[in-house]
């Protein structure tokens, strides 16, 4: 199931009129349990404001007066509202209740996918299409106005920030990356001047990154055919990949999972063609 098709459920911790506030420990435990399980939570008291309701289904929990929760219902849009009295329930029981709500709502299991995908800073992006041209996994595309966008974020390789390094404007962020400016920290002039941010891994490696992979692989293949030494070929490939990994901070497992050199070449050509078409179309629509 695509990420965008997954349903969600919001938990409301209700402590307003008609309910008794929870104890501090019980409340904190409940909030933590719900968040760790991947749910959005609204804590509603008589103070402060929260966002209005939307079409997300709700599970409203609280210590309701006389232990009687209000009746729930189903909205015209199919969203549901359920109430549950949790007075006196221990942390384990509340966690079970949340797990039950998950299975009934079809909400995704937390941690099944680390949310790792590029986020474009359009204050900086110049629509140069370097990222579209570079990415082999079809993460990028263009919108109807020929503007770059992230189209398939679940295709992105976890922990791989390589496309952000080919961006000449440091416009591509991975919010869960360890360091700035890729993590969203302010971009300094120094960052832009830094060779690793400037243009590309290919520059660092003295040539096109895919050509390098192909060359290395060909050499390894030729050696393999001469020597029939699978171990040596593997070592060669690993050496190449280690260098790439260090230069671009690309996880080794991402590099190891790259397709065959022929497939890389095919995808790289395809990506470049898409970028070229988008640039031409964008140029045409500007004139």
């Amino acid at each position: 199931m695509s990420l965008k098709d997954q349903s969600s459920l919001r938990i409301v911790v209700y402590e307003g009129a008609g309910a008794t506030p929870l104890g501090p420990e019980a409340r904190f435990e409940l909030l933590s349990a719900a968040l760790e399980r991947g749910f959005s939570v609204t804590r509603a008291t008589g103070r402060g404001s929260v966002s209005p309701s939307d079409r997300t289904s709700l599970l409203v929990v609280g210590a309701f007066d006389a232990g009687v929760p209000p009746a729930g219902g189903v909205g015209e849009d199919g969203s549901t509202v359920r109430f549950h009295d949790i007075a006196g329930m221990g942390g384990r029981a509340v966690a079970d209740l949340i797990d039950q709500a998950r299975s009934e709502s079809g909400a995704p299991v937390p941690g099944a996918w680390k949310p790792w995908f590029p986020v474009i800073d359009f204050d900086r992006c110049t629509n140069c299409m370097q990222c579209l041209s570079f990415c082999l996994f079809g993460v990028y595309g263009v919108d109807a106005g020929h503007k770059i966008q992230v189209q398939n974020n679940d295709n992105c390789k976890t922990n791989c920030p390589a496309c952000s390094r080919v961006c000449p404007e440091a416009a591509i962020m991975f919010p869960k990356y360890k360091a700035g400016p890729i993590n969203g920290d302010v971009v300094s002039d120094q960052d832009l001047q830094r060779e690793k941010m400037k243009v590309d891994i290919s520059g660092l490696l003295g040539g096109d990154v895919y050509s390098l992979l192909r060359e290395r692989s060909e050499r390894a293949k030729s050696r393999f055919s001469k020597e029939r030494d699978a171990d040596k070929a593997l070592t060669e490939r690993q050496k190449c990949l280690t260098k790439l990994a260090q230069a671009g901070d690309i996880p080794a497992e991402v590099l190891m999972s790259l397709p065959s050199p022929e497939e890389i070449a095919r995808r790289a050509e395809e990506a470049k063609a898409r970028a070229r078409d988008a640039l031409e179309a964008a140029g045409g629509s500007r004139t």
């Binding site: 969600s8 749910f39 509603a44 008291t45 079409r55 995908f117």
Partner: peptide, 25 residues
Amino acid sequence: RLSDSGVSFEAAADLCEMAARNDPA
């Protein structure tokens, strides 16, 4: 601190994950 404060608030498990799903919330 938020939990102890007595004010209403919203909490998201992970805004990145919500953005990835284009969560209407």
